[in-house]
């Protein structure tokens, strides 16, 4: 009986929170097609392409070098920082991965998709470093980014 009461209360509470979280839209938001989050300029595009190819073949070191070269041309491009973060993560350079992803975040205001991925990278890096609490916080932040 008491359990039922608690459950009912919980459901009501959940409903309340849901009501708070989701503003009733005046019109349904237009479905935005998934675009490349932060397109890169034409000078950097071939470098990014080459870096991705190298990384897919496991040549992480030269892939990183290509991204650093790209970053010299577009130093404020959060996508490039994220690509580099991911490479460092695969290389097992977790502190570097975390630093690069944080750098990407600092430049990615408004790019929620990029930020989500950055927080995931940070979470994985922290887990690998044994900082499970910090990792949880990062994963939570990844979840909190607006879709």
């Amino acid at each position: 009986m008491r359990r039922l009461l608690v459950r009912t209360l919980l459901v009501m509470l959940a409903g309340l929170f849901a009501g708070c979280a989701v503003r009733p839209p005046v019109a349904p938001p237009p479905k935005v097609p998934e675009v490349e989050v932060e397109p890169v300029g034409p000078a950097v595009a071939p470098l990014l392409r080459a870096a991705r190819e190298l990384a897919s073949a496991g040549d992480l070191e030269p892939a990183g070098a290509h991204l650093e070269r790209a970053l010299r041309i577009e130093p404020r491009n959060p996508l490039l920082w994220q690509e580099l973060a991911r490479i460092r993560l695969v290389q097992g350079l977790y502190r570097q991965a975390e630093g690069m992803a944080a750098r990407s975040n600092s430049l990615a205001a408004g790019h929620s998709q990029l930020r989500r991925e950055n927080w995931r990278i940070i979470g994985r890096a922290r887990n690998a470093l044994g900082d499970h609490q910090g990792a949880k916080e990062a994963f939570d932040l990844a979840g909190q980014q607006p879709p």
Binding site: E61, G64, A65, Q96, E98, G99, M100, A102, R103, S106
Partner: peptide, 15 residues
Amino acid sequence: PLQRYPLAVEQVIDG
């Protein structure tokens, strides 16, 4: 290539 001196960053001041 013998050695790279890669870019290394660490956030030490919060945004």
